[in-house]
């Protein structure tokens, strides 16, 4: 059973994405990357990301991650920003009372996308 199923699947994701995206938009280190984006569309993408990190259904490839973030890499997206997102992910899951070992599992999946997201 994946973390995704364990914490309540799709329904839990809707609550999680609100908490997560709110943290991201309040984070001075990364919020400027979201200036001018369509928030509703962006929230759907954040939900897809969370679902993937929690081992839920997804078909993202490394290539998708690379293409999807290339314009942000051109604007200076680097490891420090990726770290900030990882921190917000951990804090979100903690706030939703996800047990520590499952948070670690989710962090490992998210971490595995670092190279592609940063275009390395």
């Amino acid at each position: 059973m994946s973390v995704y199923d364990e914490i309540g699947g799709e329904a839990a994701m809707n609550a999680a994405v609100d908490v997560f995206y709110r943290k991201v938009l309040k984070d001075d280190r990364i919020k400027h990357f979201f200036d001018g984006v369509d928030m509703a569309r962006q929230a759907a993408k954040q939900k897809a990301f969370l679902t993937m990190a929690l081992g839920g259904p997804n078909n993202y490839t490394g290539e998708d991650m690379r293409k999807g973030h290339a314009h942000l890499v051109a604007r200076g997206l680097n490891d420090s920003h990726f770290d900030a997102v990882m921190e917000n992910l951990g804090a979100t899951l903690k706030e939703l009372n996800v047990p520590g070992h499952l948070i670690a599992q989710a962090a490992a999946i998210a971490e595995s996308t670092r190279k592609d997201v940063l275009g390395k």
Binding site: K45, K47, A48, N58, N59, D64
Partner: peptide
């Protein structure tokens, strides 16, 4: 299309 999982809309 993008995610092919019913998520990204």
């Amino acid at each position: 299309s993008s995610c092919h999982s019913g998520l990204c809309q």
